[in-house]
Design a protein around this nucleic acid. Structure first.
Lengths: 206, 206, 206, 206
DNA sequence: CATGAATGAGTGTTCATTCAT
DNA sequence: AATGAATGAACACTCATTCAT
């Protein structure tokens, strides 16, 4: 369904791999810079080129159109969050449920820590039709589900695992996001993380 | 000679205001229609006018610029959600904590039921700088907090009320949203609502 | 050639004469106000109406279009200058050539004194195609010529009177204008007037 | 990668600048054409582009906005007049006062000869806020003053040189302008020039 | 007569995209 | 490959003008 479902498409920039990736990253970074400066409406292809120190022609060498650039922007961010969460999950293969949930919350916090406003801006300003969001959701759901499975015995109610995962994943995402960027003053990051973990654990234990 | 020198003008204002509201609503509805059809980028002032069946000049009689129109779009939606949630909350003044939480989830479901994709699109595509979002958040937090206060005695841990409210409000919003628009097939709306309520109650009881 | 060459047209606003003239003046004054504030481009019919405290409909009761309003603006100003110059000239029927020329320069200074920038702005910003400018020029030329005629004997060279008048009128206008609005600091108005008169007299004596 | 890192780019700039001047001139010429056809109000950026045979985008590559284009229009004209007058003045460094004054009048006539209505239209229709008009006036005043200085001994009255220059410059401009575009039929250009020169000389001799 | 909401052609300007070099 | 001048469709917005009340 997506445009990278098959190998041929991946070849698009194979040859000059390294240089290409640097250029692409420069352009995406430029887009982020512009996004932060003036919102989504100030991201124009010409400005991206200028900010990235590249000609406008080069932008179109790597992206067929502006939309693809936006999609790449989302994808890069999603890939980061995805990587962090999967790594944390993998590290907790043998851990207790409590440690697992804490790792997730910690992972969300880590993912947003280095650039708290980026996620917000990306979410709220940059159109993400057809970015890999859906695909990412499914992958993460699968990952979460697998991590939760070994602990299913400790859940009091006999809810099916998909439902548990659905609720849990949404809580992780929502609380992970909120505690970084909407946390009221007076509530420390540490306490917010602890409280979020407790909320999720309380649900899972129920 | 001045435009407010005589009564007739004031009397004429009333019907005008009613008509004005109809016109304004027609324009906002047109914007929503366009938003659903082709995303935020397909909302243009001229298209709004055409779709709403008014002249472009009339759009600018009611909104100083496109931004103000976007803000009004958000505001109208926010006001609806706000009204529903406050009403539900008010109705549960004497109820149990369980009924209160269920009412909130029910309210979120109701708010999104008639137009599930609108909230999503509004959130993710329409820039909402300086819309009354922040103000709304505070009002809702206050409302939630007041509703939670009478039940504070039943919470096992002695977490402060603002933290409780913060976590709870985010759960209500996230789960309320998710259960309407991201719920996996295989999970009925009824069960999703029940599960969401249980999650929140588990947290509050903890 | 002009639209007030015959009597019927003068009837346009006869009945309510007094009130009409007040309204028309209010509108022209509003236009002048706007002109001074923001240049010709800030004169819009709606703004004129608002500034004059009149409805936009009323503006179109008195002027068929914006152009006519501009023409009226020029005409009113021209009429003032014309009146002053004719009066001064008439007063010098028995006077010496020197007194006559001084009266003209004095008249120009007087005409621009109360609103020095208006003439400049009118000239340089407000389009005056088909305003009564040409007609005014002819009338003034005739007036000047008649006033100069009795002194023709004192001119050294035997240049024809029309040429004399042409040069003289242009000098009066140019110097009269320049001494009010472009005079360099260091040159007093009195000396500028004296010097201008001397220049014209030197020419006429030649 | 940056746009000024290598010499080739500088070499390419040269031909570009020549082409650019041609394009700019085409656009200014188009503006003049439109101005003559339908007055200042018929000059629109899109029409300029169409008339000049370039795209509207190109207009904005050379001018940041319409105002800058108007300013350039004035500047080009002013530069022409300035150049002519300075050249004529320079040629008369050793000449008599009479020759100098005749050269000025001749210069004004020359400047307006090839396009008599342009100066008039530029002056009366095209807004010239912040065009280099003032600067030009000063330069010309300085030029005139220097040219007049050697002849100051022949002036009968002991008026200071700045005042002399002020009056003279205004006469040159006004008469030079009038003799080209407002001269009454019956007065030949040759005689108008002669008479204008005599007027200025009579003043200077006085 | 006066009003002012409504109109919509038209304006200045932007910006995604192309393509000759 | 990389460049960036050129393009022109499309945009947000203005304003002279009309006309029902």
């Amino acid at each position: 369904m997506k445009q990278n479902a098959s190998k041929p498409l991946l070849r698009r920039r194979k040859p000059t791999q390294a240089r290409a990736q640097i250029t692409v990253d420069a352009m995406l970074d430029a887009a982020v810079k512009l996004l932060k400066r003036g919102g989504a409406s100030s991201i124009t292809t010409n400005r991206i080129a200028a900010t990235a120190g590249v000609s406008i022609g080069s932008v179109y060498q790597y992206f067929p159109n502006k939309h693809a650039l936006f999609a790449a922007l989302h994808e890069r961010h999603i890939r980061q969050v995805d990587a962090i969460l999967r790594k944390r999950t993998a590290e907790c293969a043998e851990s207790s449920l409590e440690e697992l949930v804490q790792a997730w919350i910690e992972g969300m916090a880590e993912a947003h820590a280095k650039d708290p406003e980026l996620a917000e801006l990306l979410q709220s300003e940059v159109p993400h039709r057809a970015a890999g969001t859906a695909e990412f959701s499914i992958r993460l759901h699968t990952c979460f589900r697998a991590a939760l499975a070994p602990h299913a015995g400790s859940f009091r109610r006999k809810t099916d695992l998909d439902t548990r995962t659905f609720i849990t994943a949404n809580m992780v995402e929502a609380l992970g996001h909120a505690l970084v960027s909407r946390r009221p003053r007076g509530l420390s990051l540490t306490r917010a993380k602890a409280e979020s973990s407790k909320a999720i654990l309380a649900y899972l234990a129920s």
